[in-house]
Computed example of a mutant assay.
Amino acid sequence: MNFMKQLTKRREFTSIFFLLALYLIVAIINPTFMKLDNIMLCLNGASVFTICAIGMAFVIYTGEIDASIGATLGLSAAVLASMIRDGKSFGLAVLAVICIGLCIGIINGVGVAVLKVPSIIMTIGINSIVRGLSYVYTGGAWVENVPSDFKAVSQKGVAGLSWLYVGTIVAMIVIHLYLTKTKNGRYFHAVGDNEEGAIHIGIPVAATKMISYVICALCASLASIIFVSRIGFVTPTSGNGYEMKAIAACVIGGISLSGGIGNMIGAAFGALIMASISRVLVFLGFSSNYDNTITGILLITIVVIDAIMQRRNTEKARRERLAAKTASVVETKMEGGIMG
């Protein structure tokens, strides 16, 4: 019983409960949704969202935001697909993708952490620039004819799960342990929880924010590899809206937009929810065009609930401090009266 109480108090439990409830409701309406093949498709389809959510989580932990990961993924995917199509080695294509993520992450990091540009302004601006570069690079055309052996990579796996998704989950667990069990890992939460306090105890706040943006952009670039393998082609608008899905995955997974709260496990479940929405709509008889609308509704709802809960917790803490001070004053007066 105590274990269940402790479990329900954890923020990521919300995403787990929401996912189970979503699957159960859809299964009641359309039982074919719970077929093993369909569940595996939902899991394997979550790979890209999970990697993007992991990167976004680093930034949100520090109390910032990154609105450029969709464009970063799109440009990286276009470069990767065109290089592989043109016969370049896979290693060289991956190196190019990593360089793209590294450059964009450093630019975002310098803008936000060093120049103190508001993160939403900085990253929206970078999003527009990178999206423009995608159009220039592709000439506004689709990148097609990706070799079939590269597309086959996303189909290989074990027990229905692709190796790409298995690798993503393993990476998520390793990162979760790093963030929760190491001194440097806890810096990200500390910066978002209390930036001024982090500065006073010697945490390198600017460097931590810079690293978070680099990791976020690198995650978007690495996610493009899975994206190209799964989709098989890239359009000039590929990755559009992925920043919203990554943010929504983090928020639904219990990561607070104010920073310092949440963990990667919740983000992974949130990403699975995001990946499942389009399939859920199909099984419910709706068009997948409602995907972005539902994502926006979920994001706003969770943010509002989170804000209300934080306000209540703040008020509760204030009342508790006031009660403690009042009790201390009364006790002092009583002791003074006895002594007198």
Rank of each mutant, 00 (worst) to 15 (best):
Q6G: 04
L7V: 13
T8C: 08
T8M: 14
R11G: 01
F13I: 06
I16C: 08
L24W: 10
I25W: 11
A27C: 05
A27I: 08
D37M: 02
L41C: 01
L43H: 01
N44R: 09
G45Q: 05
G45E: 03
C52W: 04
A57T: 14
F58D: 04
Y61A: 02
G63N: 03
I65Y: 06
S68F: 08
G70F: 02
A71W: 08
A77Y: 05
V79L: 12
A81K: 06
M83C: 09
I84H: 05
R85E: 01
D86G: 00
S89Y: 08
L95G: 01
V97A: 08
I98C: 13
I104P: 07
I106F: 14
I107L: 14
G111M: 14
K116T: 12
V117T: 05
I121G: 04
I121H: 05
I126W: 04
I126L: 14
I126S: 11
N127C: 10
N127P: 02
I129E: 00
R131D: 05
G132K: 06
S134Q: 12
V136M: 14
W142M: 10
N145Q: 11
V146D: 00
S148P: 01
S148Q: 13
A152D: 12
S154L: 09
Q155F: 04
S162G: 08
A171H: 06
I173C: 03
I175A: 08
H176I: 03
L177V: 06
K183E: 15
N184T: 15
Y187G: 09
F188P: 11
H189Y: 15
G192N: 04
G192C: 07
G197E: 11
G197R: 11
I199E: 15
G202M: 11
I203D: 11
A206T: 12
A207R: 15
T208R: 13
I211H: 14
A217H: 10
I226Q: 12
R230W: 03
I231N: 01
F233G: 03
V234H: 02
P236W: 00
T237P: 00
N240G: 01
E243D: 10
K245Q: 12
C250V: 01
V251S: 02
I252Q: 01
G254L: 06
I255H: 00
L257H: 02
G260S: 06
M264I: 15
A268W: 05
A268T: 08
A268F: 10
F269K: 02
F269Y: 12
L272P: 02
L272I: 14
I273W: 06
I273G: 01
I273H: 01
L284S: 08
F286I: 06
S288N: 14
T295N: 09
G296A: 10
T301M: 12
V303S: 12
V303P: 03
V304M: 10
I305F: 15
Q310T: 09
T314W: 13
E315T: 07
E315V: 08
E315S: 10
R319A: 14
E320V: 04
L322F: 11
A327Q: 15
S328A: 13
S328W: 09
V329D: 04
V329E: 05
T332G: 00
M334F: 07
G336Q: 12
G336S: 12
